[in-house]
Design a protein around this nucleic acid. Structure first.
Lengths: 200, 200
DNA sequence: GTCTATAAAGGGATAGAC
DNA sequence: GTCTATCCCTTTATAGAC
């Protein structure tokens, strides 16, 4: 039937789920095959090896993430609004694939060559424009003096770390699953407020 | 000779180095033995299995980290100074074991029961005191209104993430190794400034 | 305590039938 | 395209000599 998902895509989507949603970094081909409801040999038929499947899935996830984030930063909206959407988007995507950030970091330590996706061609002109806008904010005294690098890293840190370190934070503050989800949502506003100074 | 390191400690220290400084999460018993300059069988003689070695080394690292951080927060110094030391300490320890945070998270996803170290007995009273001090800062308008949980998570995020995500950030901003070390040092001041509002 | 040799298990990969 | 059976390699773990 025409509505059925091709086996290749089924395997790929299942792998994404197992890796990035369940956080099962070391999932074997057998486990992925079981989760997809297919025979293990089919993974080798379509992807030749576990590594090639892994790399392709990770590559697609990384470039998808980067693409979405960049498109937000390229938008022709006021700076503060743009950063607000950036925070929303970053947290939203992380909520969908809670372990992706962790995977990226763990993997990129081993294969730094696979990271070109994080520095696309037009990044420099995007940065140039953001730099001008940031300078304006600093002049307006809505942002504490800083560089674009620190400014961006601050936001990424504040958005990303609570997902990466979820089990630790949950334990420290004795938050159950529901409370932690609530906590993460609260952060959208908290982060915006810490980044931009109240006008007084 | 009496100055020699006992083999058991040698293995343990070597494992710490391989795991948390070199970031070799999947290091085999053979690789650890080689790095320590001992025979592989000795690892099993002293620790019985790779898992037990791994767990003990991780446990010690985690409790050491938590202990040091808590002792800073318990100090009888002014709040802002205390938080300043906290930032310095957190970044300092992360610089010594750049991959520890990553290990903890990756591992704690699999064995959440091993995490009791992150919620020691006296944590609640420490939190109570910090809460009062934070309330005072908020009243003084030196900290934007927030909860202690978000306040602490903000600091941990800002300190920890740049280590965890080093390869990504380096790529995005085209920073070489030396530039990145400089960048990390700059953050000590940057983080303090973003946490505490300038008095005006 | 330290070594060598070997067992035992787990998982990736391929051949070949259907 | 999909399955079963099998091979092969890696790595952990143990037995036993020194």
């Amino acid at each position: 039937m025409s509505g059925a998902i091709p086996t290749e895509d089924l395997i790929k989507e299942t792998a994404k789920r197992v890796f990035f949603q369940q956080g099962h970094l070391k999932a074997t081909t057998q486990e992925i095959a079981d989760a997809a409801g297919v025979n293990r040999a089919l993974i080798h038929y379509y992807f030749r090896s576990r590594n090639l499947l892994f790399d392709r899935v990770l590559q697609e996830a990384m470039s998808g993430f980067m693409h979405k984030v960049l498109s937000v930063l390229e938008a022709e909206t006021p700076f503060q609004e743009k950063i607000g959407v950036f925070i929303q988007t970053f947290i939203g995507m992380s909520a969908e694939f809670p372990y992706l950030q962790n995977f990226i970091v763990t993997e990129m330590v081993k294969q730094p060559d696979k990271m070109t996706v994080f520095h696309p061609q037009h990044l420099d002109e995007v940065a140039k424009k953001l730099n001008e806008e940031l300078a304006q904010e600093i002049q307006n005294n809505t942002v504490a003096p800083t560089t674009l690098e620190h400014f961006i890293v601050n936001i990424m840190s504040l958005c990303s770390y609570p997902f990466i370190a979820q089990p630790i934070i949950q334990t420290i503050f004795s938050l159950n699953q529901a409370a932690y989800q609530e906590f993460l949502q609260e952060r959208k506003e908290i982060i915006f407020k810490i980044i931009f100074k109240e006008k007084s």
